[in-house]
C-alpha cells in the first residue's frame, strides 16, 4: 500500500513474493533445460552437421519422380478408405461406451468405471502402438491398421460424446420422464437430439485426424501409403519419396477442406 504523503519514486510491477515465485519458476525451467541439454545422448558434431545433411537430403529429392504416380494415388485411395471405415466403425462402437461413461446416463457405478477404463486405455495408447500390437496379431496388412485406428478413435469419440451427454439440458429429460416414457424413449427423444450436433462434429474431427494417422500405419506394416514411403526411403529412392510426401500433403489439406465443408453443411 502506498501512503499519499510520500510520493513513491520507484515503481515495481510485482510484489517481492510474486518476484520470488517467478524467479523460482524461471530457475526451475532453466535448470530443466540445462539438464536436458547436458545429459542427452547426442553426438554434437552431427548436430552442427545437420543443416548440411538436411540440405543434402532435400537436394536429392528434387525433382520428384512421378513415374510411379498411378500406384501411389491408388494406395492413397486405400489410405482414405482405411481412415473412413475405421472412423465409421469406431463411431458406432463408441456410442454405448459414451453412454455408460457419462455420469447421468450410466446404469450403475460398475458400468461407469468400466466405461471410463475403456476410454482411458484407448486414449492413452497411441495409434502406432496399437498398430504394433495388431500387426503382431493379424499380421502385416490393412486389417491391423483399421483395427488400430478404431481402437484409438473409440476413446477420443467416446470421451467427447460422454462429456456432451453430461452437459445436456436436463429439463426436457425431466419433462419426458413426467409423461411416463420409458428410459429408452427418454434417451431417444430427449438425449439423442441434444447430442447430435456434437456427435457429427466429433465424427468429422476424428475422421480428419484419422486421415493423418492412416498415412503412417504403413511404417509399422499396417497398410496404407506409409508402406510405399518406407520402401522408397529404404531403397534411397528419395525422388519417389518426395512424390509420396507431396501427395500426403495434398491429401491432408484436401481432408481438412472437406471436413471444414461438412462441418458447415451438417451443423
Amino acid at each position: 500500500m502506498v501512503s499519499m504523503d510520500t510520493t513513491p519514486e520507484e515503481w515495481v510491477r510485482y510484489t517481492p513474493r510474486e518476484r520470488l515465485q517467478r524467479f523460482v519458476i524461471f530457475l526451475a525451467t532453466a535448470l530443466a533445460i540445462v539438464w536436458a541439454l547436458t545429459s542427452i545422448n547426442v553426438i554434437w558434431a552431427w548436430v552442427f552437421d545437420a543443416p548440411q545433411q538436411m540440405g543434402d537430403l532435400f537436394g536429392r529429392m528434387v525433382p520428384p519422380d512421378v513415374s510411379n504416380l498411378p500406384k501411389i494415388l491408388w494406395v492413397l485411395v486405400e489410405t482414405v478408405n482405411i481412415a473412413t471405415i475405421a472412423t465409421a466403425i469406431a463411431v458406432f462402437v463408441s456410442l454405448p461406451v459414451a453412454y455408460i461413461a457419462a455420469q447421468n446416463t450410466t446404469p450403475n457405478a460398475f458400468t461407469l468405471w468400466l466405461g471410463r477404463f475403456i476410454l482411458v486405455s484407448s486414449r492413452s495408447v497411441n495409434t502406432i502402438i496399437w498398430a504394433l500390437l495388431f500387426v503382431a496379431i493379424f499380421g502385416p496388412g490393412i486389417v491391423a491398421g483399421i483395427v488400430a485406428i478404431m481402437f484409438r478413435s473409440i476413446g477420443f469419440i467416446g470421451k467427447l460424446l460422454g462429456e456432451a451427454i453430461e452437459e445436456i439440458d436436463k429439463r426436457p429429460v425431466e419433462a419426458l420422464e413426467a409423461t411416463g416414457a420409458s428410459r429408452f424413449k427418454v434417451i431417444v427423444y430427449a438425449i439423442v437430439p441434444q447430442v447430435m450436433p456434437t456427435f457429427w462434429a466429433v465424427a468429422i474431427l476424428r475422421w480428419d485426424i484419422n486421415l493423418r494417422e492412416s498415412t503412417v500405419l504403413g511404417l509399422v506394416g499396417a497398410g496404407g501409403i506409409g508402406l510405399i514411403l518406407q520402401s522408397a526411403i529404404d531403397t534411397f529412392n528419395w525422388q519417389e519419396a518426395a512424390t509420396v510426401l507431396l501427395s500426403i500433403l495434398v491429401l491432408v489439406v484436401l481432408g481438412e477442406i472437406v471436413s471444414a465443408w461438412m462441418r458447415k453443411r451438417i451443423i
Binding site: 542427452i40 545422448n41 547426442v42 553426438i43 552431427w46 548436430v47 552437421d49 545437420a50 545433411q53 538436411m54 543434402d56 537430403l57 502406432i128 493423418r212 494417422e213 498415412t215 503412417v216 511404417l219 506409409g226 514411403l229 518406407q230 526411403i233 510426401l245 500426403i248 500433403l249 491432408v252 489439406v253
Partner: peptide, 22 residues
C-alpha cells in the same frame, strides 16, 4: 508442419541426422 504426422517427419530426420534422440 501440421500436415505431416510426426512419425513421417521422424523417419526423414532419422535418415538425415542418424538414429537417436537428436
Amino acid at each position: 508442419a501440421r500436415s505431416f504426422h510426426p512419425v513421417i517427419v521422424a523417419i526423414i530426420f532419422v535418415k538425415a541426422v542418424g538414429f537417436g534422440p537428436f
